[in-house]
């Protein structure tokens, strides 16, 4: 019975989180606009592409797992699990959920750069990803 209650708690937590993230749903363009506004600078897609492809003093670049082309399926450097392409033109679900995008920027910037990315860096990367067709 205790186990059943815990299952219900997990189910409730799952439902509550899904509801919370649905509210924060966005289009890639809306998310880009929010990063641009937060940074106070224009987005620079070329700078975003460079940032994506170079290493930042650590073992991995963004491209290590995502490949240099955001239109291509990536492979996780450790587990070899496939990763869907990042460009919205290749995967329409990309950057349509702000909370989800923020979570992955936080995790992956910590891995690649050793800190969270700034709003300007995120704006640049996203501008490039949206532009790639």
């Amino acid at each position: 019975m205790k186990r059943l209650i815990r299952h219900l708690v997990v189910a409730y937590a799952t439902t509550a989180t899904i509801a919370a993230t649905t509210v924060a749903a966005a289009t890639p363009q809306e998310l880009l606009a929010s990063y641009v506004q937060a940074s106070g600078q224009r987005a620079d897609a070329i700078a975003g592409q460079t940032f994506f492809n170079v290493k930042h003093g650590r073992d991995w670049s963004c491209a290590t797992c995502h490949t240099a082309s955001p239109l291509t399926t990536g492979i996780h450097a450790t587990t070899s699990k496939t990763i869907a392409p990042l460009a919205p033109s290749a995967d329409a679900a990309r950057f349509t959920d702000a909370a989800r995008s923020e979570k992955w920027f936080r995790r992956n910037c910590n891995d690649v750069v050793g800190r969270e990315c700034t709003a300007s860096e995120k704006a640049n990367i996203l501008a490039w990803l949206i532009a790639v067709k």
Binding site: H7, V9, V10, A13, T14, T17, N110, D111
Partner: peptide, 17 residues
């Protein structure tokens, strides 16, 4: 070797499961 952090509520629920 990677940052796989999730929010505290989810961490707790998944840890229990």
């Amino acid at each position: 070797g990677t940052d796989a952090s999730v929010d505290p509520t989810t961490t707790q629920a998944l840890s229990t499961w």
